[in-house]
Amino acid sequence: MSGFVLRRLLLFLPQLLAIAIVGFALLRLLPVDPVSRIVGSFGTDEARQSAKETIGLDRSFGEQLGSFLEGLLTLDFGESFVSGDSVRAELGDRIPVTLQLIGIGFVLALVIAIPLGRYIASKVGGRIEKVTTVYALFAGAQPDFWWGLIFLFVFFFKLGWFPAPLGQLDPTQIAPDGPTRFIFIDTLVHGQFDLFVSALKHYALPIITLTFVLTGPILKIMRQSALDVISSDYLLYAKASGFTPKRVRRMTARNSFAPVVTITGVLLVFALGGAVLIETVFALPGLGRYALSRTLDTDFPAIQGAIVFMAAFGLTVYLVMDILYALLDPRVRHSRD
């Protein structure tokens, strides 16, 4: 087991470095011109040259890569071409928004999908099972951004249950300054319960949208997986050998979780980027919208910073997934060790 984990850990840094370097090189190979963005298409040669020097693009590719990698060691991604601010600080403001959105969305989806999938697997052919299975297939094939708009129309415009989609708080409210940048934590730390409730209302619809769509594929996998275990020979053997019902239940749960771990990991990595759609609909200042707007602005340091964080996040999820998989399914552990 420890050998398996160690091998996986050793892969992590080279993979992260590879994505960072490829991303860095890609930006400089693609036919884009950040200088024109800054001085305009008709800027004088002197203006172009001085802009180039300011943002460091006058140096050779090797020099640029060198200072990029040097910055990586201290998580310093440089200053934005557009705002001139530290990219790390900007990311620090944006990342918590996206993590809160997808974090809560995934927890809710799992809390709904796992017991429900387990339940309908024992009621195959029943009315509830049929309806739920169609929902699972349907929700997994839906444009989440469109459902976000539909929910806004119904619950904001028609019913007025939720606030206008204007970010994390009402425009008149000011978010507390630190310490974590997670609004649900910071408001509590500062004892601003009214802001906490306001944030909850602003996040509710985006989270409901995400959960509505995410529950589908997780439910589908959980149902199938539980069905596979229930009809498996080893469970029959366990029952026949006189295992206590409690132990049989634990075995069923443990063995049907592995595929759920996989689908959750895959969805989680996709959602980190895919969240840009829901962030756009609800005007949440998250990482996805940051990456999008800075891509439109050809802001190299910002894009590089976003790429490095997203790669680290994705690789961590896959690492945790592999370890959980080995913990849950003893067969994996033995085959790889």
Binding site: F270, V276, G288, G314
Partner: peptide, 8 residues
């Protein structure tokens, strides 16, 4: 596959 592909 470990990278958020929509952003890519």
């Amino acid at each position: 596959q470990a990278f958020p592909l929509f952003v890519l």
